[in-house]
């Protein structure tokens, strides 16, 4: 009787899950792929074609925007990792009790605030009449007002900021499970700070590092607000290009092709990252 009851329960639970995944995730993406592969020949008339993908490879603007987005996202991911790691170490290993939970909570705070508000904050800080510019003039480091907005550095600052949390949390979680004894043992056997980091800490923290990097990379790649608001007109972000095709030019076929390309690119890079670090997707995402 157990197995029959289980069967029924499984089917009942499978229903909503399949409905959700099929209708909102799988089919829309399949449809997007199909739309990207058709060409409009007249009113309501389409034929299968790869013209939109060809446009991507022949139009240097598209191609360059695409590469730029990927490279900047990888850079943002590396920067986030490098900045977050010591902080995560500090929280996981150097402090205890209340201080620790307080610091951990403090890392989560920006996550509770809308991305729009955070980006807006950086605009106020970095713009010509902004706080940083004012501070530089006040200290005498700059003679006139300084425009720090609308360049790649500003975009990078914003990208790193936007995804910091998603790096710190998995790092703290994995570093926390690293037994201090292992580090002590490594020291006892003659290791020093650098070798312990390389041979013990980083291999141990690899699942956390990989999962943090994947999420941060995806967030950067798919980011729209930061490049648009902090990068200004010349920001050239690929999501911006997709938005332009869809909403401004109403060229859905081209936009869908870009969407597919962005997905393929991100999957490719994530897959490469997983292969290189020998991690599995389901484990990393847990």
């Amino acid at each position: 009787m157990k197995s029959d009851g289980l069967r029924l329960g499984t089917w009942l639970l499978l229903g909503p899950a399949l409905l959700w995944l099929l209708l909102l995730i799988v089919l829309p993406h399949v449809d997007m792929l199909l739309v990207s592969l058709r060409q409009r020949t007249g009113f309501g008339q389409y034929q299968t074609s790869t013209v939109h993908y060809l446009a991507f490879f022949t139009e240097p603007l598209y191609w360059r925007t695409f590469m730029r987005t990927a490279v900047m996202s990888i850079l943002a991911t590396i920067l986030t990792l490098v900045i977050a790691f010591p902080v995560a170490w500090y929280i996981a290993k150097m402090v205890r009790g209340r201080v620790r939970s307080l610091l951990f909570m403090a890392c989560l705070v920006p996550f509770w605030v809308s991305e729009l508000v955070r980006t807006y904050g950086w605009m106020i800080l970095l713009r010509e009449t902004g706080v940083v510019s004012g501070f530089l003039q006040w200290t005498g480091l700059a003679s006139g007002s300084v425009e720090m907005l609308y360049n790649d550095v500003a975009v990078m600052v914003g990208l790193v900021y936007a995804s910091m949390l998603f790096m710190v949390v998995p790092l703290v979680t994995t570093l926390d499970s690293l037994d201090d004894c292992l580090i002590e043992a490594a020291y006892d056997l003659g290791g020093n700070g650098w070798s312990v980091l390389r041979e013990i800490v980083i291999p141990f923290a690899m699942p956390g590092i990989v999962s943090g990097c994947i999420v941060v990379f995806m967030l950067s790649l798919g980011n729209y607000l930061t490049p648009v608001l902090l990068g200004g007109k010349g920001s050239m972000w690929f999501t911006e290009q997709i938005f332009t095709q869809f909403i401004v030019r109403f060229n859905w076929e081209q936009g869908a092709a870009f969407g597919v390309l962005l997905l393929v690119l991100s999957s490719l890079i994530v897959w490469l990252g997983l292969k290189l670090t020998r991690q599995s997707f389901t484990e990393v995402m847990r």
Partner: peptide
Amino acid sequence: LVIPGVILGIS
């Protein structure tokens, strides 16, 4: 989790 929000939106 790994599909950018913009892509999810357009799909």
